[in-house]
Design a protein around this nucleic acid. Structure first.
Lengths: 109, 109
DNA sequence: CCATTTGATCGCAATATTACGATACATATC
DNA sequence: GATATGTATCGTAATATTGCGATCAAATGG
């Protein structure tokens, strides 16, 4: 009990849920928006920008990295984060495809 | 501690996060897909379709209803669920707007 | 080599989510 | 009104998430 029963659903459903889950936090939305705006971003800048502890930001970055939406490259003592364009396009497409499936039908009134 | 610090983010970020959160579970994805496919759907049908307990399905339906993406109308002893078209279009739009903000930039290599 | 800078990770407390049996509730039907 | 049907809600156990201080690790600069 307590665990999501992923085995009851297909790969596409689980993947889509994982994508949405990665974005299901305002801090992670904010991080992504920042990266979209500024191309590169250092973890420390995000800490200043968002006003959360460094450990917290680092954890959120990890989750976004986990689904591949962002990537980070070490530059000296710093790590520069940016959007992973390829995955971004994929994710965008998967979202689009999900939302496009519905076109107005007879609703329950 | 343990609670999302919503007050650090703006309304748009929190709203988008809430939308994604509502979809951040494969069962809820599956429910929405079912409603898209079949227009109307009874809770009991979803229970049979997804293979989760009735109480669990009912809870997932509640979360989807909470952000307005679906609605249910009582029909006798049953409740018929369907997509809320208006909110669906809104949500689709908000997602689109989010994903469209990014167009390829110089990434960190 | 030592101190500094920067970020990742650990460990923990608080809270939230997931799942489900049991039960309450609402509407039919007899 | 009693019974059946279908759904919501309650209570609870298991697990996951959020946030952060403390610490670890890697690279830089002296």
């Amino acid at each position: 009990m307590g665990t999501t029963k992923k085995e009851k659903f297909n790969a596409r459903q689980n993947r889509l849920a994982a994508i949405f889950k990665a974005m299901a936090h305002p801090a992670r939305i904010a991080i992504v928006q920042q990266l979209v705006k500024s191309e590169h971003c250092i973890c420390g800048e995000l800490v200043g920008e968002l006003g959360l502890a460094q450990a917290t930001i680092s954890q959120h970055l990890k989750e976004l990295k986990h689904i591949g939406l962002i990537k980070g490259c070490v530059e000296g003592t710093r790590v520069s984060y940016c959007i992973n364009e390829k995955v971004w396009q994929q994710v965008k497409k998967e979202c689009d495809q999900f939302f496009v499936t519905y076109y107005a039908k007879e609703a329950c009134h």
